[in-house]
Design a protein around this nucleic acid. Structure first.
Length: 415
RNA sequence: GCCGGGAUAGGGUAGCUUGGUUAUCCUGGGGGACUGUGGAUCCCCCGACUCGGGUUCAAAUCUCGGUCCCGGCCCCA
């Protein structure tokens, strides 16, 4: 027996229906916000991802050489492909460009709770604008999506990587050490960050100031402590969010995000029910296009971990009920099968989801089957009914039945 | 890459400590009792010891290794 590869999943019909249902909700929210959907290839030139995230990610990439000796990688995320697409084909489109996408990504990592080797991301990118309103729009979209799915317990944290980056530059941290220090600060691992900074000649005073800064966490009021332009920027952002009815988030100036190209506002959403892998959304403003050969264009984007958010919803007890089908057509006896087939085809043409027995079952078993596939109605096709060009229509939830003319059937069911 | 716990019909499980008939029970699936009415009952049938090696007269059970799953560390774009 062949097993499914490590870290992958099969989605059976019930699960798939649930996934499509929520996927649809996310799409509809994105469209409501004026975003349009795009899709990029499942695999790309490996270089694309290396340029974005550095050579170290090669270890965690599904990368291979194709038959034409090209270095190919399954995409580990969707921002880089989207920005590549923008640079290749969309750079002259009117700004802002508002895009969203949904698709699977692949990472060669150790699977654990909420982490798979094949997983699904839903994301959005807002390209060509660099205002607080842009960031507010992105955050509002993310929040609206999470709300639309019905997730109750989540925590949004908003920070500003630009301020921290500048502070580190000001105290003399060279660019090549920046990533390492930021990584430590992200984890609030001050005992690890300290010695590194000390070696780089940072004074204890400056260090304390930076640590205090990254520990600036709280409501909007902590923004009073952020000086200068970034402070103004964040205050404007907060006011826009408030205008859109979004509050209850934390300002956390220690939110870092792993990558170099984030330039300003960064944000994360986590769902505490999830345990170790609890981050369900991450994003921020960045400039990436110039890396792929385009002009420098400011963007804000985020990605939602679709699998994780579904997992969180499950843990919160949000249940999805299968839709089932509208009608199951039951032939009473073998000689009415042609009529059952005819009626089934007619209903299907009218756009009604409809199924009928193809196993030669007797009526009782066919009724039972109709009930297990969660059919709203059963159309009973028998000789007596056919004499008056009718069928018996049974409402499966109430058990009520009535004689309905075949010509009236579609109308009857749609009502 | 590291640490720990697991894997028995499609799903959920008992058996494993202390090796020994035909591997338990529930659910599911197919058929029948019911020849024109589902979610009830009864009967029949289908279906499993993760894979490979070792110990043994004998392995689901003990042992070693692989694979996969679960939880955590590292990482997390």
């Amino acid at each position: 027996m062949i097993q499914r590869p490590r870290g992958t999943r099969d989605f059976l019909p019930d699960e798939m229906e649930r996934r499509r249902h929520y996927e649809g909700k996310l799409r509809s929210v994105a469209k409501r916000f004026g975003f349009r959907e795009t899709a990029t290839p499942i695999f790309e030139d490996s270089e694309l991802f290396i340029m974005r995230s550095g050579p170290n990610i090669l270890d965690e990439l599904y990368a291979f050489k194709d038959k034409g000796d090209r270095e190919i990688a399954l995409r580990p995320e969707l921002t880089a492909p989207t920005i590549r697409m923008f640079v290749n084909n969309m750079s002259n489109e009117p700004k802002p460009i508002k895009l969203f996408y949904f698709g699977q990504c692949f990472r060669y990592e150790r699977p654990q709770s909420g982490r798979y080797r094949e997983f699904f991301q839903f994301g959005a990118e807002l390209i060509g604008s660099a205002t607080p309103d842009t960031d507010a729009e992105a955050i509002a979209l993310a929040v609206s999506m999470i709300e639309e799915l019905g997730l109750k317990e989540y925590r949004l944290r908003i920070g500003h990587i630009g301020v921290l980056r500048q502070k580190l530059l000001d105290v003399g941290i060279p660019a090549e050490n920046m990533a390492e220090i930021l990584q430590k600060l992200d984890k609030k691992a001050y005992d690890e960050a300290g010695p590194i900074m000390e070696v780089l000649g940072v004074s204890q005073n400056s260090m304390d100031e930076i640590f205090e800064f990254t520990d600036t966490i709280g409501g909007v009021e902590v923004l009073d402590r952020v000086p200068g332009e970034p402070g103004d920027y964040l205050r404007t952002l907060a006011s826009r969010l408030s205008a859109m009815g979004i509050d209850g988030y934390d300002i956390d100036l220690g939110v870092v995000r792993g990558l170099d190209y984030y330039t300003g506002v960064v944000f994360e959403v986590e769902a505490p029910v999830l345990g170790a892998e609890k981050q369900i959304c991450g994003g921020g403003s960045y400039t990436l296009s110039q890396l792929f050969g385009g002009e420098e264009v400011f963007s804000t984007g985020f990605a939602i971990g679709f699998d994780r958010i579904l997992l969180a919803m499950e843990k919160e007890g949000i249940e999805y009920e299968s839709e089932g089908i509208d009608v199951y057509v039951v032939p009473v006896s073998d000689d009415t099968r042609p009529d059952a087939a005819r009626i089934t085809a007619m209903l299907r043409k009218a756009g009604i989801s409809c199924d009928t027995d193809i196993m030669g079952r007797k009526m009782g078993k066919a009724m039972k089957y109709a009930s297990t596939v969660n059919s709203k109605f059963v159309a009973i096709v028998g000789k007596t009914e056919l004499e008056s060009e009718s069928v018996t229509l049974r409402d499966m939830s109430s058990g009520e039945q009535k004689l309905v003319l075949i010509s009236e059937l579609v109308k009857e069911i749609q009502f």
